[in-house]
Amino acid sequence: MNSITSKIALRPIALGLLVLIVSTILFGRAQAGGGHFYPPVADAQTRDECGSCHLAYPAAMLPKRSWSRIMGDLKNHFGADASVDAATAEHISRYLLANAGDTGGQRYGAKLLRGVSPDNAPLRITELPKWVREHRKISDAEWRSQKIGSKANCAACHADAERGYFEE
């Protein structure tokens, strides 16, 4: 009698636990977008300054050393003068360095930064090995099309890029 009650009582508990574990895993994946979620820039000044010409790329998409390089030469920013005053630059640098893909944003950026050697500080997200792999099916003609125009134009295809989601 005793063994029967314990059997009956155990089953729902085991089932409950199983459901909990599976949903935790699923929720975690959904939250992380299966590795395609990068927290959008949370700092207002960084979002405004970086986001006036292009999407304010999430800090987790590049390592700290890359952001240092970029912030060190804003006058020659991919062919444009993106310089800001010293106080603004200092503020933005602090945010980006603290939330980079190998610092505060590691949880989100680690996968994207796989294969980037520590002595390499890439300036372009579009040169990261994982980025190249994920976009390999897009032809040059498509990149140049009116709709996209530039590899920097994430939002042309990733409709929710501004909110941090970069699924297909």
Binding site: H54, G79, S150
Partner: peptide, 9 residues
């Protein structure tokens, strides 16, 4: 009308 930056924003 709205404009467009070199990278399409």
């Amino acid at each position: 009308s709205a404009g467009r930056t070199p990278v399409g924003k």
